[in-house]
Lab assay of single mutants.
Amino acid sequence: HMTFVALYDYVASGETDLSFKKGERLQIVNNTEGDWALAHSLTTGRTGYIPSNYVAPSD
């Protein structure tokens, strides 16, 4: 899985969403939902949907 870094803070709007903080590292599990991606946080160990425009690929 590619690793991504959060560009902004995001507060989950539902139970299936994943909250994260700017700078948090995430792995995209499934990116077939258009503007949303299923992601796993390497920081918190949690998995949920995130807005895909809130993250960018990290080196």
Rank of each mutant, 00 (worst) to 15 (best):
H1Y: 13
H1W: 13
H1V: 12
M2F: 11
M2E: 11
M2D: 11
T3D: 09
T3F: 13
T3K: 05
T3V: 15
T3S: 09
F4D: 01
F4H: 08
F4P: 01
F4M: 11
F4E: 02
V5K: 04
V5R: 03
V5A: 03
A6N: 01
A6M: 07
A6F: 02
A6E: 02
A6H: 00
L7Q: 07
L7T: 06
L7P: 05
Y8W: 12
Y8V: 08
Y8P: 00
Y8E: 09
D9L: 05
D9R: 00
Y10P: 00
Y10V: 03
Y10D: 00
Y10S: 01
V11P: 04
V11R: 06
V11A: 09
V11L: 08
V11S: 09
V11M: 09
A12T: 04
S13N: 10
S13C: 14
G14N: 13
G14Q: 10
G14P: 03
E15W: 08
E15M: 09
E15S: 12
T16E: 11
T16Q: 14
T16F: 15
T16P: 05
D17T: 07
D17Q: 15
D17Y: 13
D17I: 08
L18I: 11
L18A: 06
L18C: 04
L18N: 03
L18K: 03
S19R: 05
S19K: 04
S19W: 04
F20R: 15
F20S: 00
F20K: 00
F20P: 00
K21T: 09
K21M: 09
K21W: 04
K22F: 04
K22R: 09
K22N: 02
G23M: 02
G23K: 01
G23S: 02
G23H: 03
G23N: 05
G23T: 01
E24I: 01
E24K: 00
E24R: 00
E24P: 00
E24D: 11
R25C: 14
R25W: 13
L26A: 00
L26C: 02
L26D: 00
L26K: 00
L26V: 04
L26G: 00
L26M: 08
Q27C: 15
Q27K: 12
I28A: 02
V29H: 15
V29R: 08
V29K: 08
N30F: 14
N30T: 14
N30Y: 14
N30W: 13
N30E: 12
N30R: 11
N30I: 11
N31V: 13
N31L: 14
N31S: 12
N31I: 14
N31T: 12
N31P: 13
T32S: 12
T32R: 10
T32A: 12
T32I: 14
E33Y: 13
E33F: 14
E33A: 11
E33H: 12
E33T: 13
G34E: 07
G34T: 07
G34K: 08
D35S: 09
D35P: 12
D35N: 10
D35I: 10
D35W: 08
D35R: 10
W36N: 03
W36E: 03
W36A: 03
A37N: 06
L38Y: 12
L38I: 07
A39G: 04
H40M: 14
H40R: 14
H40P: 00
S41Y: 00
S41F: 02
S41V: 01
S41N: 12
L42T: 06
L42Q: 06
L42R: 04
T43N: 08
T43H: 08
T44M: 02
T44G: 02
T44R: 02
G45I: 01
G45T: 03
G45Y: 04
G45P: 01
G45F: 04
G45Q: 05
R46W: 06
R46F: 08
R46G: 07
R46M: 11
R46E: 08
T47W: 14
T47S: 11
T47E: 07
T47G: 05
G48Q: 01
G48R: 01
G48C: 04
G48Y: 02
Y49V: 06
Y49G: 01
Y49C: 13
Y49A: 03
Y49E: 03
Y49K: 07
Y49R: 09
Y49T: 06
Y49H: 06
I50G: 00
I50Q: 00
I50D: 00
P51G: 01
P51L: 04
P51S: 02
P51C: 04
P51A: 02
S52W: 15
S52Q: 09
S52G: 07
S52P: 11
S52R: 15
N53Q: 10
N53I: 10
N53K: 12
Y54R: 06
Y54G: 06
Y54E: 02
V55Q: 04
V55R: 03
V55H: 04
V55P: 04
V55A: 07
V55S: 04
A56F: 09
A56R: 10
A56Q: 11
A56V: 14
A56M: 11
A56C: 12
P57W: 12
P57D: 07
P57I: 12
D59W: 13
D59K: 10
D59N: 11
D59L: 12
D59T: 12
